[in-house]
Design a protein around this nucleic acid. Structure first.
Length: 585
RNA sequence: GCGGUCGUAGUCUAGCUUGGUCAAGACAUCGGCCUCCCACGCCGACGACCCGGGUUCGAAUCCCGGCGACCGCACCA
């Protein structure tokens, strides 16, 4: 402990509370703990589930979105295709004198004026040579650098006990969706737009994760890949959200060194092309609403545009949704990337599978095309064993070119082969095209589930009369109702247990507590954010009514036990306010 | 990974300088008593020196290593 006792900040208090009351804690504590890994206790797991449920309500059910679950481990091919094997590693050099580490490519950009894209392409050997050539020394102490080494931030493993097959732990769940695209498209009845969602663990071998739930080595990611036709980019949900406002920090402001926030409606953001894809704008609006529903006020949120060199390798435009927290300022909670057709195209290249979709024209398009038919009877004697190859290459040449050249010059040079007019038949052919094939575009909202838990806690936390209260929005509270006998005798516990069982049967998350004074039990319940407390007292034995207590106002109302199920169902679906639950007490 | 600070019950702290009747207090938890609606009071119980090695007759205390935490640097595709 440090000698000067600082008052702990909110983050510290919340983490302490989370550990003490069983929301979450660092994993493997009995072996000293390993940073970047966390275990959720009962309350935390429930809170997280409720948050994810809320996201599903908002995104999944209304939007033709298919939720799937795919593996965490993937063969190396998958992440080679996705570009992660190339991009997920950093070339590092260590100063031999002061042991500080630096990004080798960043040093070259800064001190040798080598362009960013150029610096990124250099191999370890080339980096070493460039550093030596430009005599780059440690910017901190002037020492010389050792060998550049890659730091790979993906977890690597071997698939199968005796196998050499390399596998990686996924750093995002998105690839699990892209590789299954053909089946998913099938399940979506071959209609665009549609989306696929995955909530699951992802692994990133962070260098030094030490911000609680904010940076973990194993964490829960929520990746939503939404596929659409770039020629029909309109979003059918736009009307519902076009007047929602977004607080944005644009790339152009950042370039000027400013973090000025512009507040615009979704509609304006699209009109002014702050946001390029309509779907992306809509998802951003929904993401804002989600965080508001989790208790983060709109003014504590913003969307910050990534500069080209800050963007992931797959993204054409991306925004980070950030939430303001006391300890660190603005922290990312979701990323909104326009991934275009990058991923599907790459998997198409690497796997050979056709990721294109077929789009039927309203009317078939008839076109007349020039067709070059090789006449094998002539080609054979001239080119002998090469004839088949010539014919094949010829079929790939542009027929218009071939025809034009033959008309003009009397021959066509196909590489080193001279094609004379008599070798081919030039014909016109009518072709009926019923549609075309293309690779769909993707916008991706991607949420960190653990961060949402952290932010929900941060904004739920209040202090009332020196007591900690977690004022969760009522629909994400891990436990909904506490049931208490006023005293633990005279038949009150028996009566309270009846109420408790009834509410359990109704499907509520209920807790029963008879230990300690009633005030202490209320305080305990407030600290884990139970919205309502039901107390069985001596009145109850006479007229079958109980008191209902509100966590936030500490007000109490009185109601009949038989009315509780309906009243509470309404309350938790936001169809009744606390005051509607009974008569003031 | 570097530098600084630090690691004692579930939590917060005392003890460490000067090694030895030293493992203490408060809160929380559990049991009991009290018609008890906002952490009431009283009685009782459970419960800790981060791990490993060294020095020593003897280590929570001194030394070394490891692990972990916080702050700063770097990193966060």
């Amino acid at each position: 402990m440090s000698s000067e006792t600082k008052t702990p900040d909110k983050f510290t208090i919340i983490n302490e509370l989370a550990r003490r009351r069983g929301f979450f804690w660092q994993s493997y504590e009995i072996y000293g703990g390993v940073s970047g890994f966390v275990t959720y206790g009962f309350l935390g797991a429930k809170l997280k589930q409720n948050i994810e449920k809320k996201l599903r309500e908002l995104f999944v059910n209304k939007l033709r979105i298919l939720e799937i679950e795919s593996p965490v481990i993937a063969p190396s091919k998958v992440f080679e295709a996705s570009g992660h094997v190339d991009h997920f590693k950093e070339p590092m050099v260590e100063c031999q004198k002061c042991k500080r580490r630096f990004r080798a490519d960043h040093l070259l950009q800064e001190f040798a004026k080598i362009g960013e894209s150029e610096a990124e392409k250099l191999s370890l050997k080339e980096l070493k040579e460039a550093i030596e050539k430009h005599e780059i020394r440690c910017p901190e102490c002037g020492g010389t650098f050792g060998e550049p080494k890659y730091f790979l931030t993906m977890f690597k493993t071997a698939i199968g006990p005796y196998s050499e097959a390399v596998g990686y732990g996924r750093p995002e769940a998105a690839q699990g969706i892209f590789v299954e695209f053909r089946r998913l498209y099938d399940m979506a009845r071959e209609k665009l737009p549609f989306g696929a969602l995955q909530i699951g663990h992802a692994l990133r071998n962070e260098i030094s994760p030490r911000q609680g739930l904010i940076r973990l080595r194993e964490f829960t990611i929520i990746d939503l890949e939404f596929f659409f036709d770039p020629e029909e980019p309109n979003c059918f949900l736009l009307k519902d959200v076009e007047n929602e406002t977004l607080r944005m920090v644009l790339a152009e402001s950042k370039l000027r060194g400013s973090e000025e926030i512009v507040e615009v409606t979704v509609k304006e953001a699209l009109e002014k092309s702050y946001i390029k894809a309509e779907w992306q704008a809509v998802f951003m609006a929904l993401a804002k609403k989600l965080l508001v529903d989790l208790g983060v006020p709109a003014e504590k949120q913003r969307f910050i545009e990534k500069l080209p060199w800050e963007r992931a390798h797959y993204a054409l435009q991306s925004f980070d949704q950030e939430v303001y927290v006391e300890r660190w300022g603005w922290v990312e909670v979701s990323g909104h990337a326009y991934r275009t057709d990058y991923d599907l195209k790459r998997h198409m290249q690497f796997s050979g599978a056709d990721m294109r979709v077929f789009k039927e024209y309203e009317k078939p398009v008839e076109t007349e095309q020039t067709v070059i038919k090789p006449l094998m009877a002539k080609l054979g004697p001239v080119f002998k064993e090469e004839a088949a190859k010539v014919a094949e290459v010829l079929s790939k040449a542009d027929p218009e070119d071939v025809e034009a050249s033959i008309k003009k010059n009397g021959y066509y040079m196909l590489g080193e082969y001279k094609i004379l007019p008599e070798y081919v038949e030039i014909a016109r052919q009518k072709v009926k095209e019923r549609g075309k094939r293309f690779v769909p575009h993707v916008v991706e909202p991607s949420f960190g589930s653990d961060r949402m838990v952290q932010f929900a806690l941060e904004y739920a936390y209040r202090v009332k009369d020196d007591r900690s209260v977690l004022s969760f929005p009522r629909d994400i509270a891990p436990i909904q109702v506490g049931v208490y006998p006023l005293v633990s005798k005279d038949g009150l516990p028996e009566k309270a247990l009846q109420v408790y069982k009834m509410l359990l049967d109704e499907g509520f998350m209920v807790e029963y507590d008879e230990a300690g004074s009633i005030g202490r039990r209320y305080a305990r319940a407030d600290e884990i954010g139970i919205p309502l407390g039901i107390t069985v007292d001596y009145e109850t034995l006479k007229d079958n009514t109980v008191t209902i207590r509100d966590r936030d106002s500490w007000k109490q109302v009185r109601s009949g036990i038989e009315d509780l199920p309906e009243l509470l169902h309404k309350y938790f679906r936001w169809k009744a306010n606390f005051e509607d639950l009974g008569k003031p007490f």
